[in-house]
């Protein structure tokens, strides 16, 4: 990876860092923060689902672990917010490695992998809904206490900047992956596992690396979520909503592309807000639109919005053209 490779991610990150200061009102600022959290979760999903071709239906398992770890370590163990966040990421990655170890050792892929990740997330959701440490069904509340060391900012613009920086770091990580041997091996495994193995790629190790990275990034999104809303319950942390939004954003934005998840998160949530504004307070309409967009993307633009942009002539260096590949499990 050369410094030039980082030019585009850095430029996008800088531009996003400025947006909170151009006079956004409170609602827009909240939307921006939420977009960044979803973009981060989607970025994580994309590492495994886009680059690795292993579509997960249970990224909530990682998101929720990051979120709960951040909240519990602060409230129950008295740790600072920043170390809690780092530990949250590490724990999320560990959960990813655990699920990956079990699934990949048994050779699960395709639909089977999607279903087992969903089952793990559901087990965590039900368990955290009745466990004592997570506050059970009542949920867990982080005390409001402004200060840099508590990662709580009275001026919410700074939290937006923090979220943007996290997205920027994830962009750099994925750009590194694209350039590194690891990324090449991962794509080789996605395209043809047997051929990759025949070429000497350690398939199991590559998949383990992908799910660990993927889980860590999505866990970071969960940590930010906990820190932003200061409240968690089982449905928020481990509910299927986040698995679905991460997957939708990554696919609509562009599977296996650097900027796809970010584009997808911004477009999806933007469209969602517009729909809600047009239709009014009917619950669920935005998700109906998301579902339609997902099906349209799979049917007509397997490369997502990033792929469409490329087809229309916006050339982006380093973008890799891909489609959904299905290995029968």
């Amino acid at each position: 990876m050369t410094p030039r490779d980082l030019a585009a991610p850095a430029a996008v990150t800088l531009a996003l860092c400025v947006t909170p200061f151009v006079g956004l009102d409170g609602a827009m600022l909240n939307l921006l923060i939420f977009m960044m959290i979803i973009a981060l979760a989607a970025q994580g999903w994309n590492i495994l689902g886009g680059f690795g071709g292993l579509a997960s239906f249970g990224h909530a398992a990682f998101f929720g672990t990051g979120a709960y770890a951040t909240a519990i370590l602060q409230t129950k163990a008295g740790l600072g917010a920043w170390p809690s966040l780092l530990l949250g990421v590490a724990l999320g990655a560990a959960v990813g490695a655990f699920i990956g170890f079990l699934s990949f050792r048994s050779g699960l892929r395709g639909s089977y992998f999607a279903l087992i990740t969903l089952a793990f997330a559901e087990v965590l959701r039900i368990a955290s809904n009745s466990a004592e440490i997570t506050g059970g069904a009542a949920g867990i509340l982080v005390r409001l206490d402004y200060g840099f060391w508590n990662m709580q900012f009275e001026d919410r613009r700074w939290f937006a900047v923090l979220a943007v920086i996290c997205v920027g770091l994830s962009l750099a990580l994925v750009r590194w992956m694209e350039r590194a041997r690891f990324g090449a091996r991962l794509i080789a495994v996605r395209e043809n596992e047997e051929a990759a193995r025949a070429l000497g790629v350690d398939v199991f190790r590559v998949k383990m690396g992908a799910i660990t990275l993927s889980a860590g990034v999505t866990a970071l999104a969960g940590c930010l979520y906990a820190q932003n809303f200061l409240f968690l319950d089982a449905q928020v942390a481990y509910g299927s909503w986040i698995s679905i939004e991460a997957l939708f954003a990554a696919i609509v934005g562009g599977l296996g592309t650097l900027f796809g998840p970010l584009i997808g998160a911004v477009v999806l949530l933007g469209v969602g807000e517009i729909t809600k504004a047009v239709v009014g307070g009917v619950p669920g309409v935005d998700l109906v639109v998301f579902g339609v967009l997902l099906i349209l993307t799979v049917a007509f633009a397997p490369g997502g919005l990033a792929g469409l942009a490329e087809r229309l002539g916006f050339k982006r260096p380093g973008a890799k053209r891909i489609g959904l590949k299905g290995g029968r499990a």
Partner: peptide, 15 residues
């Protein structure tokens, strides 16, 4: 395609 069917039916269920 296997993964596409999975995603289309997921989208359908969300709708």
């Amino acid at each position: 395609a296997d993964n596409s069917i999975l995603l289309v039916t997921l989208g359908l269920s969300i709708i």
